[in-house]
């Protein structure tokens, strides 16, 4: 077992985990934050995307032990109370989701993108979400949602 300290959505956790446990397993099973999804488990679909020290990563490819001392943000950490994060609100308003399974990861990738580049072009938006598959929407409304979020957040 390995002792680790994690900060998830500003909440500190001290955990003892088996070395082979992934960050995704810890988030979902040990912390009960099931908003982060497991799609392929191989880093090919992006459903498990979270931010680690501000960077989008596939939490299925990271050992929990490797995340020791890191700041993690999951989809549950975006809204403040009842107020949705502007990216979440844009996905709601522009129909950027259907089944919702890719949505948490997609929103986290969008957040990583807009944090770095508040005024992305359409091509940059597409580049920013290449690691996230969506099978329902055909991406059109997701791209519209991210564009709208960028505008609402002050990027122009």
């Amino acid at each position: 077992m390995k002792e680790i300290n994690l900060t998830v959505n500003n909440q500190p956790y001290r955990l003892s985990v088996p070395p082979r446990r992934t960050l995704l397993e810890v988030i979902r099973e040990d912390l009960g934050l099931t908003g982060t999804k497991e799609g392929c488990g191989l880093g090919e679909c992006g459903a498990c995307t979270v931010l680690m020290d501000g960077q989008a990563i596939n939490s299925c490819l990271v050992l929990a032990a490797e995340a020791d001392g890191k700041q993690i943000t999951t989809v549950e950490g975006l809204a403040s109370g009842d107020k949705l994060h502007p990216i979440q609100q844009a996905f709601v308003d522009h129909g950027g989701l259907q089944c919702g399974f890719c949505t948490p990861g997609m929103i986290m990738s969008a957040k990583a993108l807009l944090d770095k580049n508040p005024t992305p072009t359409e091509e940059e938006i597409k580049q920013g979400i290449t690691g996230n598959l969506c099978r329902c929407t055909g991406y059109t409304k997701i791209i519209e949602s991210i564009k709208a979020a960028a505008e609402n957040m002050g990027g122009k």
Partner: peptide
């Protein structure tokens, strides 16, 4: 190469 997530890591 791969995705932004993989390139970050």
């Amino acid at each position: 190469m791969a995705s932004p997530q993989v390139r970050n890591r």
